[in-house]
Simulated scan of single mutants.
Amino acid sequence: MNKKRKIGRKKLFGLLFLLLISFVYLNNTSFFAKGQEKAPWLLAHRGLAQTFHMEGITGEMCTAERIYEPEHPFLENTIPSMDAAFQAGADVVELDIQPTKDGTFAVFHDWTLDCRTNGKGVTREYTLEELKQLDIGYGYTADQGKSYPFRGKGVGMMPSLDEVLTHFPDKEFLIHVKSNDPHEGEQLAGFLAKLPSSRLSQLTVYGGDEPIRALQERMPELRVMSKATLKSCLIPYIAVGWTGYVPSACSHTQLQIPEKIGPWLWGWPHRFQERMEAADTRVIVVGGDGSDFSSGFDSPEDIKRLPAGYSGGIWTNRIDRIAPLFR
C-alpha cells in the first residue's frame, strides 16, 4: 500500500510540475501577444550627430577626436541636428543638459568644454551667454588633427533647453541629466514645473540616481529613469514576472533594455512589451550588454539582431540610416 501511495504521489507531483511548466510557458510566450504588427518607434541619440569608433574607448577620451569621415553637416545637441532627426523619422530625440552659472540649462553633452569647443574648463561654470560665444564644432577631426571640418561652423549653436522646447513645441524628448547632483534635479523640477501637463507628457528625464530621485519626488507625474528605478523594476520582475505580475515600480517609467539582457526577462519581447504598455511604461532596446547605454542600432545589420516583430523603442545613433527601414 505504501509503495502504491509513493508511486501515486510521484505521479501527482510530476503532473503538477508539468502543469506549472505549461503555465509558465503559455503565460510568457510571445506567440499570443498582440501588437506585433506595429512598427517600432525610433529614438535619435543626440539628434543626427557625428558618430565615432568605439574601440578601446573610455569615459575620459575625447570622442570629437575619433569621428568617422563626416557624411552630413550636423553636430549633436543642436537645433538643426534635432530638426534633421525628426525630419528623418525620429519619434523621440535624446539630448543632454548642463546647468549654467546663471541658473538655466544649456544643451551640451560634456562636463568640460575642452574636447568639442574652443573654450576651456567646466561647462557649468559659464553663463549661457558665454557658452553661446563658443564654437562647438571646433574640436571635431576624423584624421587625427590634420583637418577640422567643423571649425567656425558651430559658433553660437549651443542652445538652451528652453530654446529647444520652444522650437519644437509638439515633439517628444528624452532629457539626460549628466550628473549625480540632487540639486540639479531640484533645479530641473523648478524649470519643468512651469510647463503644462500636456507638454510634460511628451518629456522623459533620465540620469544619475540622486537628481532623478529629487525630480521624481517633486514631479511624480513626470516619466523618469535611472539605474535605481531600472533595478527597482527589473529585479522583482525577474523574480516573479513569470506569473504575469508587474511590480508597481514598473509603472509610468521608462526601461532602457540592453539587447543581451532582454531575453532574460519573462515574456520577452512581445508579452513583456504588452505588460509594460499596460503599466504606462515605455521600453527602449539599446545595443550591447548594458556597459554602455550609448550603443545603438545604427545599421541594417544591427536591426537584424532585433526579435522578429519587435514593436518597442529602438535607440539609434544613425536615425538617417535606420528610419528608412521602417518608414
Rank of each mutant, 00 (worst) to 15 (best):
Y138H: 14
I175E: 00
P307H: 15
G56L: 04
F105M: 01
F13L: 14
T29W: 00
L255T: 01
R9H: 07
H167N: 03
P80G: 00
P236L: 10
T104G: 06
D143F: 11
G244I: 03
I319S: 00
M82E: 00
I284K: 06
S22C: 05
Q133H: 11
N180F: 12
P300A: 13
E65L: 02
E60P: 02
Q254G: 04
T204D: 07
E301L: 07
F168E: 07
K153F: 05
V177T: 05
G296I: 08
I79Y: 03
I175A: 09
L325A: 07
M54H: 09
N2T: 15
S248T: 15
P182A: 10
W268E: 00
E210T: 02
E55G: 13
D280R: 11
F52E: 05
L43I: 07
G121W: 13
L222C: 07
Q254N: 08
T141E: 09
D292A: 09
T63A: 14
G244A: 13
M157Q: 13
F52K: 02
H72N: 03
A90Y: 00
F272M: 07
H53G: 05
K153M: 03
S22I: 10
G89F: 06
G190M: 05
D114F: 08
D162W: 00
R9T: 10
Q133N: 14
E172A: 12
S201P: 04
F17C: 10
H72P: 02
L188D: 00
E301M: 14
V107F: 06
S179I: 01
Y237F: 15
T204Q: 14
P73F: 02
M225I: 07
L26A: 12
I97S: 02
D289Q: 08
L306E: 06
P182R: 12
R327C: 08
R5T: 12
L134K: 07
H109A: 13
L113A: 08
V155M: 06
